[in-house]
Protein backbone atom coordinates (compact mmCIF):
# COMPACT_ATOMS: atom_id res chain seq x y z
CA UNK A 1 0.00 0.00 0.00
CA UNK A 2 2.76 2.33 1.05
CA UNK A 3 4.85 1.45 -2.00
CA UNK A 4 1.80 2.04 -4.24
CA UNK A 5 1.47 5.50 -2.75
CA UNK A 6 5.14 6.14 -3.28
CA UNK A 7 4.98 5.06 -6.95
CA UNK A 8 1.93 7.24 -7.47
CA UNK A 9 3.74 10.19 -5.89
CA UNK A 10 6.86 9.59 -8.00
CA UNK A 11 4.80 9.32 -11.17
CA UNK A 12 3.07 12.59 -10.41
CA UNK A 13 6.37 14.20 -9.51
CA UNK A 14 8.04 13.06 -12.74
CA UNK A 15 5.10 14.08 -14.91
CA UNK A 16 5.10 17.46 -13.18
CA UNK A 17 8.84 17.82 -13.67
CA UNK A 18 8.71 16.89 -17.35
CA UNK A 19 5.73 19.17 -17.91
CA UNK A 20 7.64 22.02 -16.28
CA UNK A 21 10.69 21.32 -18.46
CA UNK A 22 8.52 21.24 -21.59
CA UNK A 23 6.79 24.51 -20.71
CA UNK A 24 10.16 26.11 -20.00
CA UNK A 25 11.57 24.90 -23.31
CA UNK A 26 8.56 26.09 -25.31
CA UNK A 27 8.74 29.46 -23.56
CA UNK A 28 12.44 29.73 -24.40
CA UNK A 29 11.81 28.98 -28.08
CA UNK A 30 8.91 31.44 -28.29
CA UNK A 31 10.80 34.19 -26.47
CA UNK A 32 13.71 33.88 -28.88
CA UNK A 33 11.90 32.85 -32.04
CA UNK A 34 13.23 35.84 -33.96
CA UNK A 35 16.80 34.57 -33.65
CA UNK A 36 15.99 31.82 -36.14
CA UNK A 37 14.90 34.49 -38.56
CA UNK A 38 17.69 37.03 -38.24
CA UNK A 39 20.77 35.01 -37.32
CA UNK A 40 20.03 31.51 -38.69
CA UNK A 41 23.59 30.72 -39.74
CA UNK A 42 25.18 32.00 -36.55
CA UNK A 43 22.62 30.10 -34.51
CA UNK A 44 23.37 26.95 -36.47
CA UNK A 45 27.12 27.42 -36.01
CA UNK A 46 26.80 27.60 -32.21
CA UNK A 47 24.41 24.64 -32.10
CA UNK A 48 20.92 26.19 -32.15
CA UNK A 49 18.72 27.52 -29.38
CA UNK A 50 19.51 24.52 -27.19
CA UNK A 51 23.18 25.56 -27.28
CA UNK A 52 22.21 29.00 -26.03
CA UNK A 53 20.39 27.39 -23.11
CA UNK A 54 23.47 25.30 -22.48
CA UNK A 55 25.54 28.49 -22.51
CA UNK A 56 23.29 29.89 -19.76
CA UNK A 57 23.83 26.73 -17.70
CA UNK A 58 27.61 27.07 -18.04
CA UNK A 59 27.33 30.74 -17.12
CA UNK A 60 25.49 29.79 -13.92
CA UNK A 61 28.01 27.08 -13.17
CA UNK A 62 30.96 29.45 -13.48
CA UNK A 63 29.09 32.08 -11.47
CA UNK A 64 28.61 29.52 -8.73
CA UNK A 65 32.30 28.52 -8.80
CA UNK A 66 33.38 32.16 -8.69
CA UNK A 67 31.07 33.18 -5.85
CA UNK A 68 31.96 30.03 -3.92
CA UNK A 69 35.67 30.86 -4.25
CA UNK A 70 35.11 34.50 -3.33
CA UNK A 71 33.14 33.55 -0.22
CA UNK A 72 36.21 31.64 1.05
CA UNK A 73 37.95 34.99 1.28
CA UNK A 74 35.24 37.38 2.44
CA UNK A 75 32.06 37.62 4.47
CA UNK A 76 28.87 37.49 2.49
CA UNK A 77 27.27 40.14 4.73
CA UNK A 78 30.12 42.59 4.23
CA UNK A 79 31.50 42.38 0.68
CA UNK A 80 34.62 44.54 0.87
CA UNK A 81 34.90 45.64 -2.77
CA UNK A 82 32.56 46.95 -5.45
CA UNK A 83 33.35 43.88 -7.56
CA UNK A 84 32.42 41.58 -4.67
CA UNK A 85 29.13 43.44 -4.25
CA UNK A 86 28.42 43.17 -7.97
CA UNK A 87 29.19 39.43 -7.92
CA UNK A 88 26.86 38.78 -4.99
CA UNK A 89 24.08 40.92 -6.52
CA UNK A 90 24.38 39.09 -9.80
CA UNK A 91 24.40 35.69 -8.08
CA UNK A 92 21.18 36.69 -6.32
CA UNK A 93 19.62 37.85 -9.59
CA UNK A 94 20.57 34.53 -11.18
CA UNK A 95 19.26 32.70 -8.07
CA UNK A 96 22.61 31.10 -7.45
CA UNK A 97 22.65 32.85 -4.09
CA UNK A 98 19.64 33.05 -1.79
CA UNK A 99 20.44 35.75 0.75
CA UNK A 100 23.82 34.42 1.79
CA UNK A 101 23.07 30.77 1.11
CA UNK A 102 24.86 29.48 -1.96
CA UNK A 103 22.90 27.00 -4.07
CA UNK A 104 25.12 24.35 -5.60
CA UNK A 105 25.11 24.41 -9.40
CA UNK A 106 26.21 21.19 -11.06
CA UNK A 107 28.79 21.31 -13.82
CA UNK A 108 26.77 20.79 -17.04
CA UNK A 109 27.28 17.34 -18.51
CA UNK A 110 27.30 18.59 -22.09
CA UNK A 111 30.36 20.60 -23.10
CA UNK A 112 29.86 24.21 -24.13
CA UNK A 113 29.87 25.01 -27.86
CA UNK A 114 33.41 24.89 -29.26
CA UNK A 115 33.21 28.50 -30.49
CA UNK A 116 32.88 29.64 -26.85
CA UNK A 117 36.03 27.91 -25.65
CA UNK A 118 38.12 31.09 -25.74
CA UNK A 119 35.44 32.92 -23.77
CA UNK A 120 35.28 30.38 -20.95
CA UNK A 121 39.10 30.19 -20.90
CA UNK A 122 39.04 33.93 -20.34
CA UNK A 123 36.54 33.52 -17.50
CA UNK A 124 38.85 31.02 -15.84
CA UNK A 125 41.95 33.17 -16.33
CA UNK A 126 40.48 36.52 -15.36
CA UNK A 127 37.85 35.63 -12.78
CA UNK A 128 38.15 32.13 -11.32
CA UNK A 129 41.93 32.15 -10.84
CA UNK A 130 41.80 35.60 -9.19
CA UNK A 131 38.61 35.11 -7.18
CA UNK A 132 40.19 35.86 -3.80
CA UNK A 133 42.00 38.95 -5.03
CA UNK A 134 38.82 40.21 -6.71
CA UNK A 135 36.95 39.70 -3.44
CA UNK A 136 39.42 41.57 -1.31
CA UNK A 137 41.40 44.10 -3.31
CA UNK A 138 40.45 47.13 -5.43
CA UNK A 139 39.89 46.14 -9.05
CA UNK A 140 42.75 48.32 -10.30
CA UNK A 141 45.20 46.40 -8.10
CA UNK A 142 44.05 43.01 -9.41
CA UNK A 143 43.67 43.94 -13.07
CA UNK A 144 45.72 47.05 -13.86
CA UNK A 145 44.40 49.42 -16.55
CA UNK A 146 46.87 48.20 -19.19
CA UNK A 147 45.86 44.60 -18.65
CA UNK A 148 42.16 45.54 -18.64
CA UNK A 149 42.65 47.26 -22.01
CA UNK A 150 44.36 44.19 -23.47
CA UNK A 151 41.70 41.85 -22.07
CA UNK A 152 38.98 44.12 -23.43
CA UNK A 153 40.51 43.97 -26.90
CA UNK A 154 40.90 40.20 -26.63
CA UNK A 155 37.28 39.84 -25.52
CA UNK A 156 35.56 42.11 -28.05
CA UNK A 157 37.57 40.84 -31.00
CA UNK A 158 37.07 37.15 -30.21
CA UNK A 159 35.65 35.07 -33.01
CA UNK A 160 32.27 34.27 -31.43
CA UNK A 161 31.59 37.84 -30.30
CA UNK A 162 32.55 39.32 -33.63
CA UNK A 163 30.60 36.71 -35.62
CA UNK A 164 27.50 37.32 -33.52
CA UNK A 165 27.64 41.07 -34.09
CA UNK A 166 28.13 40.72 -37.85
CA UNK A 167 25.25 38.23 -37.98
CA UNK A 168 22.86 40.64 -36.23
CA UNK A 169 23.72 43.53 -38.57
CA UNK A 170 23.29 41.28 -41.59
CA UNK A 171 20.05 39.79 -40.25
CA UNK A 172 18.46 43.10 -39.30
CA UNK A 173 19.91 44.72 -42.42
CA UNK A 174 21.29 47.69 -40.48
CA UNK A 175 23.61 48.93 -43.27
CA UNK A 176 20.64 49.14 -45.64
CA UNK A 177 18.68 51.46 -43.35
CA UNK A 178 20.67 54.63 -44.12
CA UNK A 179 23.32 56.49 -42.14
CA UNK A 180 24.12 54.67 -38.93
CA UNK A 181 25.53 55.82 -35.58
CA UNK A 182 27.37 53.16 -33.59
CA UNK A 183 27.03 54.19 -29.95
CA UNK A 184 29.95 53.28 -27.67
CA UNK A 185 31.52 51.65 -30.67
CA UNK A 186 34.84 50.71 -29.10
CA UNK A 187 37.43 49.40 -31.51
CA UNK A 188 35.74 46.29 -32.81
CA UNK A 189 32.18 47.22 -33.69
CA UNK A 190 33.13 49.47 -36.65
CA UNK A 191 35.21 46.61 -38.08
CA UNK A 192 32.30 44.20 -37.67
CA UNK A 193 29.93 46.70 -39.21
CA UNK A 194 32.22 47.03 -42.24
CA UNK A 195 32.20 43.23 -42.52
CA UNK A 196 28.38 43.23 -42.43
CA UNK A 197 28.35 45.83 -45.25
CA UNK A 198 30.63 43.57 -47.28
CA UNK A 199 28.39 40.55 -46.68
CA UNK A 200 25.31 42.53 -47.77
CA UNK A 201 27.30 44.15 -50.57
CA UNK A 202 26.12 47.66 -49.69
CA UNK A 203 27.98 50.92 -49.19
CA UNK A 204 28.95 51.47 -45.58
CA UNK A 205 27.71 54.81 -44.29
CA UNK A 206 28.26 55.19 -40.60
CA UNK A 207 29.80 57.14 -37.73
CA UNK A 208 31.18 55.74 -34.50
CA UNK A 209 30.79 57.39 -31.12
CA UNK A 210 33.06 56.73 -28.17
CA UNK A 211 33.03 58.46 -24.80
CA UNK A 212 36.22 56.91 -23.42
CA UNK A 213 39.12 59.04 -24.58
CA UNK A 214 41.68 56.19 -24.54
CA UNK A 215 39.51 53.99 -26.73
CA UNK A 216 38.73 56.97 -28.94
CA UNK A 217 42.43 57.37 -29.77
CA UNK A 218 42.40 53.88 -31.34
CA UNK A 219 39.00 54.46 -32.93
CA UNK A 220 40.26 57.64 -34.57
CA UNK A 221 43.08 55.72 -36.26
CA UNK A 222 40.65 53.09 -37.54
CA UNK A 223 38.33 55.84 -38.79
CA UNK A 224 41.13 57.45 -40.77
CA UNK A 225 42.10 54.12 -42.27
CA UNK A 226 38.59 52.93 -43.18
CA UNK A 227 36.94 56.23 -44.00
CA UNK A 228 34.22 56.59 -41.38
CA UNK A 229 33.54 59.39 -38.90
CA UNK A 230 34.63 59.05 -35.29
CA UNK A 231 33.16 61.20 -32.53
CA UNK A 232 34.44 61.73 -29.02
CA UNK A 233 31.46 62.42 -26.74
CA UNK A 234 27.83 63.17 -27.61
CA UNK A 235 28.37 66.92 -27.77
CA UNK A 236 30.72 66.63 -30.73
CA UNK A 237 28.00 65.16 -33.00
CA UNK A 238 26.61 67.68 -35.50
CA UNK A 239 24.40 65.47 -37.69
CA UNK A 240 21.40 63.16 -37.52
CA UNK A 241 21.12 59.48 -38.41
CA UNK A 242 18.66 56.96 -39.77
CA UNK A 243 19.62 54.38 -37.16
CA UNK A 244 21.45 54.43 -33.86
CA UNK A 245 22.97 51.13 -32.81
CA UNK A 246 23.59 50.20 -29.17
CA UNK A 247 25.39 46.88 -28.99
CA UNK A 248 26.22 45.82 -25.44
CA UNK A 249 26.74 49.39 -24.30
CA UNK A 250 24.10 49.72 -21.59
CA UNK A 251 26.15 47.69 -19.12
CA UNK A 252 29.20 49.89 -19.83
CA UNK A 253 27.52 53.33 -19.85
CA UNK A 254 27.78 55.47 -16.73
CA UNK A 255 24.23 56.70 -17.40
CA UNK A 256 22.42 54.34 -19.81
CA UNK A 257 19.14 56.29 -19.75
CA UNK A 258 21.00 59.42 -20.79
CA UNK A 259 22.66 57.57 -23.69
CA UNK A 260 19.33 56.19 -24.94
CA UNK A 261 17.68 59.62 -24.60
CA UNK A 262 20.48 61.30 -26.55
CA UNK A 263 20.18 58.67 -29.27
CA UNK A 264 16.48 59.57 -29.51
CA UNK A 265 17.38 63.15 -30.43
CA UNK A 266 19.82 62.07 -33.13
CA UNK A 267 18.24 59.04 -34.85
CA UNK A 268 14.91 57.83 -36.21
CA UNK A 269 15.44 54.20 -35.26
CA UNK A 270 17.33 52.39 -32.54
CA UNK A 271 18.72 48.88 -32.76
CA UNK A 272 19.55 47.42 -29.37
CA UNK A 273 21.56 44.23 -28.98
CA UNK A 274 22.28 43.59 -25.35
CA UNK A 275 23.35 40.57 -23.34
CA UNK A 276 20.92 40.35 -20.43
CA UNK A 277 20.91 38.88 -16.98
CA UNK A 278 18.07 36.45 -17.74
CA UNK A 279 20.47 34.37 -19.81
CA UNK A 280 23.94 35.45 -18.71
CA UNK A 281 25.82 35.84 -15.50
CA UNK A 282 29.57 35.51 -15.56
CA UNK A 283 29.95 37.60 -18.69
CA UNK A 284 28.74 40.65 -16.76
CA UNK A 285 31.36 40.05 -14.10
CA UNK A 286 34.00 39.69 -16.77
CA UNK A 287 33.01 43.05 -18.24
CA UNK A 288 32.75 44.63 -14.78
CA UNK A 289 36.30 43.42 -14.13
CA UNK A 290 37.22 45.23 -17.35
CA UNK A 291 35.52 48.42 -16.04
CA UNK A 292 31.89 48.00 -17.14
CA UNK A 293 29.31 49.35 -14.72
CA UNK A 294 26.46 46.89 -14.22
CA UNK A 295 24.29 44.01 -15.36
CA UNK A 296 20.94 44.65 -17.07
CA UNK A 297 17.76 42.71 -17.69
CA UNK A 298 15.72 42.81 -20.90
CA UNK A 299 12.85 44.50 -19.08
CA UNK A 300 15.24 47.20 -17.88
CA UNK A 301 16.45 47.72 -21.45
CA UNK A 302 12.90 48.09 -22.77
CA UNK A 303 11.99 50.31 -19.83
CA UNK A 304 14.94 52.61 -20.54
CA UNK A 305 14.07 52.86 -24.23
CA UNK A 306 10.39 53.55 -23.59
CA UNK A 307 11.26 56.09 -20.92
CA UNK A 308 13.35 57.93 -23.53
CA UNK A 309 10.38 58.02 -25.92
CA UNK A 310 11.26 55.07 -28.14
CA UNK A 311 8.44 52.79 -29.28
CA UNK A 312 9.15 49.10 -29.67
CA UNK A 313 8.81 48.15 -33.32
CA UNK A 314 10.11 44.60 -33.35
CA UNK A 315 11.60 42.39 -30.69
CA UNK A 316 13.63 39.49 -32.07
CA UNK A 317 14.91 37.88 -28.89
CA UNK A 318 14.73 38.34 -25.14
CA UNK A 319 17.66 36.33 -23.76
CA UNK A 320 20.49 35.51 -23.43
CA UNK A 321 20.82 38.38 -25.92
CA UNK A 322 18.05 40.92 -26.20
CA UNK A 323 17.63 42.15 -29.78
CA UNK A 324 15.02 44.74 -30.73
CA UNK A 325 14.36 47.65 -33.04
CA UNK A 326 12.69 50.81 -31.70
CA UNK A 327 11.26 53.81 -33.54
Amino acid sequence: MASGGYICFMRRFLIGWYAEQCVEQVKYVLDNWGLRKIVPHFLKSVGGLSALRLFTKWEDYYLYVLVDSMLQCMECEKPPTSFARAALDLARRRRVLDGCRLKAVQRPKKPYPQILESYFNLVEDVLISRACDLAAKPLEDVIPDEEAAALYQLFVSSEWYSAGRVAVHVGVGTPRRGRVLLIGAGTQEPLDFIKACQVLNVRCDFAALEVDERIYRDLEKLAAKHGFTAYLGWDSIRETFSVAVATNVLNWATDPSDAIAKARRLARELLVTQGVVEGMGTVFLLTIALRAQRSVSWREVEGLAEQAGWRLEKRYAKYPVYIAVFR
Binding site: E146, A149, A150, Q153, S157, T187, L191, K225
Partner: peptide, 11 residues
Amino acid sequence: ADADALLLEKA
Protein backbone atom coordinates in the same frame (compact mmCIF):
# COMPACT_ATOMS: atom_id res chain seq x y z
CA ALA B 1 43.75 42.37 -39.32
CA ASP B 2 43.23 45.66 -37.48
CA ALA B 3 41.87 43.82 -34.45
CA ASP B 4 45.07 41.75 -34.25
CA ALA B 5 47.27 44.83 -34.54
CA LEU B 6 45.36 46.47 -31.70
CA LEU B 7 45.56 43.34 -29.59
CA LEU B 8 49.32 43.10 -30.09
CA GLU B 9 49.72 46.76 -29.16
CA LYS B 10 47.66 46.32 -25.98
CA ALA B 11 49.41 43.04 -25.19
